[in-house]
Write a protein that binds this DNA or RNA. Structure first.
Lengths: 234, 234
DNA sequence: CAACGCCTGTCTACACTGTAGACTTTACCC
DNA sequence: GGGTAAAGTCTACAGTGTAGACAGGCGTTG
């Protein structure tokens, strides 16, 4: 696609492209968090004037949307998988892994849609929705039920991810100590339960917790599907 | 508590207090969104120098935490309700209502905990967690199960709220039109399902959807509780 | 080959942000 | 009154997003 014929010193001369800009942006967000991603610093990181970035994203918000898309693009969805339950399970674990790999992007994934009407969102962020709908429809749900199923599924999934990330602390060494220390700060008589749970909070197996939830959810959904099939026959 | 003896012109002279500052901050966030809340504008709104705010919040982030607390304080939780399922249901509807009343605060509720270790969060944001744990423990769950139940419950709840808020558009008049228009923008062959669902998307009954989900969830949780009670006896 | 036009990148400038530090004013207590 | 601590203000600084005018190099076309 973009073969800019790297003339000259090679490094500093390569032409920019949207992909290059977004990739670097994601890299910075992963490394230093959302707030560290300023137009000026991104420009500096790319060896370009900050203003050049505006050729590839209308403004900072749009650039952040691009980062969201970049991450969500890595979510592979087999929309014609005949085993829809297995597929939903796989997608969930996929997204969870993505979230753990890019924790600083999660606020973006969760927050940006709140301030953008559905139809105006970046296409990359709508594609998962579309594909899951398609998966569910080919599994036998009628379209409007597919939407309901999608909602409970994605709601559950995002809820889990937020929960897990909240309890996720960066440095696994100091984890337990810091946690206890933090909890120790809490007034003993107002937070007895929370304080007592320190050890339980320390070993949280996100993957298995997600999986258990999925099992319950999916069996519930399957029941709905077969109920619906029965109604269609009767 | 704060009776500052309003001398002089009455309005501009009243002494500030944390509550006054936070209340005004929330008001501004509700009216104009998070980004509109700058220290300077908040100071101006209060008729004070922006710098005076730093007597009541260490910095802007802390001020936003205060706003979160202010909202969550309005969530009433009866931690000794004998009917724990009804209580969880009530809390869920309560929080949903709060979220709809203060949609601009939701990103805060969801995002701030991601960057603050649990033990260091504002107490006001931990109180609901503590109270729900207490509710569950008195309902018969043993503490570590209570934590698991809390996670699935709160995860589901936040997931639902995010979902609902995503599809919530401000102007109810232009809603449908804008929505269709927005969706119409989507490439027809890449988003057939999504486009077809425009009408279904338009009438979304969040409360009943939440309630249905809760019914499923709570019955699942109750099953777990009685299974556990049986195990304890046997 | 030359000239054109477009696209990329740069420069300058502006209005605005959070907040550190020193200062002044106010309120209250003895 | 006098003294003390808090509340509020002023000034200043480093940093932000981005509008608008401009420069350079590329590919296309005559």
């Amino acid at each position: 696609m973009t073969s800019p014929k790297p003339t000259g010193t090679g490094k500093a001369k390569a032409r920019l492209s949207r992909d290059i800009v977004l990739a670097k942006a994601l890299e910075m967000v992963d490394a230093e968090g959302l707030e560290a991603l300023t137009m000026r610093r991104l420009g500096q990181e790319l060896g370009r004037d900050p203003m050049s970035l505006y050729r590839y994203a209308e403004n900072r918000a749009a650039l952040l949307d691009g980062v969201s898309e970049l991450v969500l693009d890595q979510l592979t969805i087999q929309q014609d998988d005949p085993d829809w339950k297995a597929q939903l399970r796989a997608i969930a674990h996929n997204l969870r892994t993505l979230a753990l790999q890019h924790p600083n992007v999660v606020p973006l994934l969760v927050t940006r849609p709140l301030s953008t009407p559905l139809g105006l969102r970046p296409l990359g962020t709508l594609r998962p929705l579309e594909k899951i709908l398609s998966l569910l429809v080919s599994a036998g749900f009628d379209p409007s039920d597919a939407l309901h199923v999608y909602r409970v599924y994605y709601g559950f999934l995002y809820g889990h991810i937020l929960n897990e990330l909240q309890e996720f602390v960066v440095d696994p060494e100091e984890n337990e100590v810091l946690l206890r220390l933090g909890l120790h700060r809490l007034p003993a008589k107002e937070f007895p339960n929370l304080r007592a749970l320190a050890p339980a909070l320390a070993d949280y197996d996100g993957a298995s917790e997600l999986d258990q939830g999925l099992t319950i959810l999916l069996s519930g959904l399957e029941a709905q599907l077969s109920r619906q099939a029965a109604a269609a026959l009767g």
